[in-house]
Design a protein around this nucleic acid. Structure first.
Length: 279
DNA sequence: AATGGGGCCTGAGAGC
DNA sequence: TGCTCTCAGGCCCCAT
């Protein structure tokens, strides 16, 4: 499940390969992959023959600003990725390769997404604050503007669980199941607790935990879970799965106290946590 | 306004 | 072995 670290990893990996390169052709194999654009034809027209300036990230999306004052936004959904196919590689597009950008030097950028929750959108301009796609988006958790005071304020009067709050992109962007479970473990907070019950002290710990978990995962090129679905731009697995404490570790022993990690349903989702460490 | 729940979608894994 | 069923998850939309 690509979240912030996975999107950041891919964005960094492709940067040198796409910066300053012109898209000489675009093919869409599955219209659903560009469903928010008027049509696949319109999408192709808007991006082809323009030059990619660089690659960056907002939340769980990868951004490719173009020299025609438009920006390609790649939302990875839950199984999406961007693969870099270098010039000398044979065309290895499979049935889940929905969009292919061919660059002027022969390299290709493939949007692959088996579960098709992801999509590619084109927005006008380069300023993410003006993008309809990101309307209502919250703090970038690795930015200095996200600190314990901002988190504590977000929690105020919120009846829903702290895990639901962290996963809602309107509060903080880029955090999904993996990193909310892991951050709450590190800060010793029960994910089911109402957000409003989080004290300032706990907000301090949780903020540090979020930044630490995300940064460490970026260093490991992200998390490839049990199904191994996630792969980076070079087709490799991320290695953060070996450092997980609770996510997909239900039934195993807690690395800290030895208790059995639980995976229990709560308000329409299931949460991994240590019943002894997390209060 | 805030919150909860259903649906989209496919592949992996469980159960028979 | 091979079929069917359930589940995972981000994110949108709708009901309350």
């Amino acid at each position: 499940m690509p979240e912030l670290p996975e999107a950041e990893t891919i964005s960094r990996q492709i940067r040198d390969f796409v910066s300053g390169k012109k898209i000489i052709s675009t093919s869409v194999n599955r219209d659903r992959a560009v469903r928010s654009n008027n049509s696949a034809m319109q999408f192709i027209k808007e991006v082809t023959d323009s030059t990619i300036l660089t690659s960056s990230r907002r939340g769980k999306s990868i951004l490719l600003p173009l020299d025609n004052d438009k920006t390609i936004i790649v939302r990875l959904g839950m199984s999406g990725s961007l693969y870099l196919k270098e010039n000398n590689e044979t065309n290895s597009a499979d049935k889940h390769t929905h969009v292919i950008f061919k660059l002027e030097n022969g390299d290709e950028l493939h949007f692959v997404d088996p579960r098709t929750f992801g999509e590619i959108i084109v927005e006008n301009g380069h300023n993410t604050e003006n993008f309809e796609t990101f309307k209502g988006y919250g703090y970038e958790p690795l930015h200095e503007s996200f600190n314990s005071s901002t988190l504590h304020k977000l929690c105020k009067n919120k009846k829903s669980s702290i895990e639901a709050l962290l996963m809602d992109q309107k509060n903080v962007v880029g955090i999904g199941k993996i990193y909310s479970d892991e951050s709450l473990f590190l800060s010793e907070i029960d994910p089911r607790r109402p957000a409003e019950s989080i004290t300032k002290k706990e907000a301090d710990k949780l903020t540090d935990a979020i930044k630490e978990v995300l940064s460490n995962s970026i260093e490991s090129h992200g998390t490839s879970g049990k199904d191994g679905a996630y792969r980076d731009a070079f087709g490799n697995h991320g290695t953060f799965a070996t450092k997980l404490n609770v996510y997909q570790r239900d039934g195993k022993n807690c690395n800290r106290c030895g208790a059995t990690i639980e995976f229990v349903p709560f308000q329409g989702r299931r949460m991994h946590f240590c019943p002894k460490c997390q209060k």
